[in-house]
Amino acid sequence: MTGPLAVLAERFPELEFGTVHGDHVVRVERERLAEVTAAAREAGFEMFVDLCAVDYLRRPEGRFEVVVNLVSIEEPQRIRILSALPGSDPTAPSITGVYPGANFYEREAYDLFGIEFEGHPDLTRILLPDDWVGHPLRKDTPVGSVPVQFKHPDEDTT
């Protein structure tokens, strides 16, 4: 481990830093997400890349997962910070204070999954209409396909 990853690992010896398919991955509890992300930024992961959510439906650690991807341009190196959330209480601290670019991403996770980010300045729907009910990317929501409607069923189409 070199570079910003080593700095971060030194700072948080209690966290497990692993490698999955060549990606550096670290799991944190959700209460520490903002703290670890801020430390990652100081350690050298200057650029915010991505924040997304995954719905694992039936998983003992927690139904949802918030995934934060950061990159260090100097090194170059990537890191992925994962944080599990329980299905009954899908809230997580917002990291917009660390990276303002997480703003739209957290709104998207809220819109599609229903995960609420505490401390987000404007947590509203972003991709779906404002009056939409439900969170379509959750696994217990059907995909919403309709049976194909043939426009002129009584015409002879041969």
């Binding site: 200057e46 650029m47 915010f48 991505d50 990159v71 341009i73 170059p76 990276y99 303002p100 670019g101």
Partner: peptide, 22 residues
């Protein structure tokens, strides 16, 4: 860096980040 802007927009500001090289 803060907003996660990449590509020609970032490179025009001087941020030397191209995924093909990194």
């Amino acid at each position: 860096l803060a907003y996660g802007v990449t590509g020609p927009v970032a490179r025009a500001s001087g941020v030397d980040y191209d995924v093909r090289k990194a």
